[in-house]
Design a protein around this nucleic acid. Structure first.
Lengths: 141, 141
DNA sequence: CTTTATGCAAAGCCTTTGCAGGGTA
DNA sequence: TACCCTGCAAAGGCTTTGCATAAAG
């Protein structure tokens, strides 16, 4: 819902095109809907929203597109507890998530300290962190 | 696979009984198999192992038992990326997980610093952390 | 014009549930 | 005995896939 982020979407599409991916009407619509959402929607919700601007888009295409976009690094797949996958564009810098257990709302945050500690811990065990997931399931105090 | 952890299992069963849960042959077997596993098995793997000591146990009962044990706080449900839920007994103190992306192995670790930072971050946003999930998807360096 | 994407419907996981019979406290 | 639990099989969510058609480059 961040209004005219057109240039951002255009950039993503250019990158995808350069990466050999065809930009179809459906893919463009799905990507745009996701870029304009800030609530980490699930596939079926994304399908519903996309249909408002293009009623022909099928759920299968939504799933296929999401997988493709993820493979190209343009979006992230989030798998919270209970329920299916949810998605976000990968435009903002890396962050983690707080999940409000009462409302289901998702809040983004970032901690350099935690990032650093994670890498240190993995290194001590002989590993490199490829990616990680930190979710805080919380209630308002 | 930690050998004779009988007293631990007995303790858990006592607690469950005291909590109003009936200890059946099936539940006892499932709990024991899980307590003796250190590889965070999924439901179907648990079913396979449980059947070795009691071939009558059905998969439905495995699922129902796991949910019940989780509700009673005796086990934890882990939901890693891709694939279904995996489980561990809740006897050891809280810890997080490193997932070896090449072998699928799961390594436990604990960081007081990270725990503290998480609580601080949530507090700043007006939240209390009920529980959290920290997973490091790693490769051997 | 070649190759890739789409829609539809069917199938695939993993997990839950209704029901009648069986076991626990 | 009263109630809870179990097995079986069917159904449920979410996601993927086979196929013929349509569209992109």
């Amino acid at each position: 819902m961040n209004g005219p982020a057109h240039q951002q979407i255009d950039e993503m599409e250019q990158a995808l095109r350069a990466d050999g991916m065809r930009i179809t009407r459906q893919r463009s619509a799905i990507l745009r809907v996701l870029a304009e959402s800030d609530d980490h929607p699930a596939a079926d919700e994304l399908h519903r929203r996309t249909r408002e601007m293009d009623p022909t888009v099928s759920l299968a295409t939504v799933y296929r597109t999401l997988s493709a976009l993820e493979a190209h690094g343009v979006i992230h797949r989030l798998t919270f507890e209970g329920g299916g996958a949810r998605f976000e564009t990968a435009d903002s810098p890396h962050h983690d998530h707080i999940i409000d257990m009462d409302t289901g709302a998702v809040i983004e945050f970032r901690s350099e300290k935690i990032e650093r500690l994670q890498a240190e811990i993995a290194a001590e065990l002989g590993y490199d962190v490829v990616h990680h997931k930190l979710e805080l399931y919380c209630r308002k105090r």
